[in-house]
Design a protein around this nucleic acid. Structure first.
Lengths: 198, 198, 198, 198
DNA sequence: GATGAATGAGGATTCATTCAT
DNA sequence: TATGAATGAATCCTCATTCAT
């Protein structure tokens, strides 16, 4: 299995670094190879082509997101708590690896339609976790009985994505993780003042 | 003023059509020129370079968004109503021009970091309108007194952006405008059930 | 019509020179462009791709062969005479342009199957002329009534092709045109001695 | 002697199969190795380089041609009969192994000038046999006293080569061996009708 | 103003060959 | 002997931009 050989991960990590430092369109295979300490041709022993490298970067990293998030939400009882730790985990991973943040929030979005389509496929796992929390919250009566799951999922994903992108565009100059509880409150309660909610 | 000469708008409209039909990376200057009925070189009499064409597409269209939205929100008393008509207007414009929707939601995002940075500059007008509604809602006591304006703006923009993008990715097969009230309710009240909100 | 613009022929001639001097596999587009005194990209204004350049070289030159041969055979009464002037013309053209001879006899044969298939299509015009002479000779009673036209055509073409190739491989060190009457006699009478033919 | 070890022949046979099935330019060393059931590197224990493999294919097969032909012509008295059985043998070998026919008539001709030059060296043995028959025929008075041996050799080789190639290009859809007597008659008597030969 | 022919830089990918095991 | 992972050189084509007309 190629995925488990050391050079596979070496190339993936090199790609993240090169894309973050040079931008998507300046991330040539030769740069990635040099960064990984292998020959250009070696990359083609592990990946079908350049697109495959980029897809794999996203797959590997997104798998890590999903795995981490599944672990932390398992330890929480309520849907509300699950959402909170999900937001925290998401933001923590990005904060801990700002190069990864640049790559996923900005650079990989410049890819062409084919690649973006494949990236969307990978995203589905993440969105499933999110929808399952929303279902769970509805069942428990935490969330409104008429909550439109798909729309709520779009709101939540859109919000954390926009929050993370804005943070990257502001060059990480504030604490992203600290925003998690505030985002959480906003998602749960909305903008409205409690008095007006009657 | 070049902006007012007929060929200026002609080229802008041609660019929208070409990008929508061919995708960002297949939108060559020669295609745009052919679609606009002018010679390649003529484009350079009206625009500095290709990036300038793309920026201008976004500027022209976004100016229309802001103008339209300013008009409709002026006729509404409450911040809540203003938000609702804002969402409706936003979705109506995209629904009425699916090519424009494809261009702004999918294709222009494939541009490189420089161009996206400039696009974000243009977006600021739109975001200002949004923030001013939020401020207004706070002043009136409609919205929570401790509402973080910037975060709320990110939530709202992220939500409608994600909603619109998902609709485009689903090839406009459902009614986007019909989602406006539901998005509005979600933004205002959050996911939480009213009983649990105590 | 691109075929008539001066750069079209300029590029064709440059291709012949470059292929003859460097060999088929070392005939890069950049070399051909330099030889033609144009930019690499200019070649793609006149030809679809590299294969198209090579096909066109063959088409242009073969058209010249066919045209010349049609002219000279028109002036002859008998099939035998037509064949003789055909051989002479064929050999004269190759002798007058040894670079062309190298290209058609040796280099273009190294092309891949697709290209060779297209080259064979072009060759059909030439072979048609040959077959029509053979038909004519049969009708006139010059050639044997039971002559298998297709086989005779293969003999004649195979013979002049092999003769020309051998001459090129021997670096043109003898007079190819002088062989025409001898080839002609051999083709007409065969190897057999006249006494034995009874 | 490497030639006698089993893997040597194994690689040669694998090369014929791979070239016939994939074409000259798609006959990579790795494919030949896989077909032969050895590792890529093993090929370099038996052959100096890829060119050496291809030359050796031609040498081995051409040696078989020469050997077979020498056997059959030894059993014939006249030069005319020798030529006939030579043509029959040549065509029989190709008919019996259509992969070999594809390789020698089409694929190996795509090789570069160096390789083709070496292939021509190998061909000389075959051509010698042909020339010796012609000499023999002249001595016996079967062939014309003024027959130009070299030219006749070129005619004969060109004819059977073209005949064989045409047959391969027509995907072996007719009986090549059946053509031998007709080719033989044509070579011996030429195109001319017997009445006109006076 | 308008044209469009000409320019030329830039990069993914293949595959013969090597050499440590 | 045999292996096969690793190497790295080499090239076609696109397309934004210019500038003579």
């Amino acid at each position: 299995m190629k995925r488990n050989r050391p050079k596979y991960k070496q190339i993936i990590e090199a790609a993240v670094v090169v894309i973050a430092e040079n931008g998507y369109h300046q991330a040539q295979i030769s740069k990635i190879a040099r960064q990984a300490g292998v020959a250009d041709g070696t990359i083609y022993l592990y990946f079908k082509n350049k697109e495959d490298v980029l897809i794999s970067v996203f797959q590997e990293k997104m798998a890590m997101f999903v795995e981490t998030i599944n672990e932390v939400i398992a330890g929480k009882e309520t849907a509300s708590e699950k959402l909170l730790v999900m937001f925290e985990s998401h933001f923590k991973i990005l904060s801990a690896d700002t190069k990864l943040a640049i790559v996923t929030q900005l650079e990989l979005r410049q890819s062409n339609k084919d690649l973006r389509f494949k990236i969307n496929e990978v995203l589905k796992d993440y969105l499933s976790v999110l929808e399952s929390i929303l279902e769970y919250g509805k069942e428990r009566g935490e969330f409104a009985a008429d909550l439109d799951i798909r729309l709520a999922r779009q709101m939540i994903f859109g919000t954390i994505d926009e929050t993370a992108t804005t943070w990257v565009l502001n060059e990480h100059k504030y604490d992203l993780v600290a925003l998690a509880p505030k985002v959480h409150k906003l998602i749960l309660n909305g903008c409205i003042s409690e008095n007006a909610a009657s």
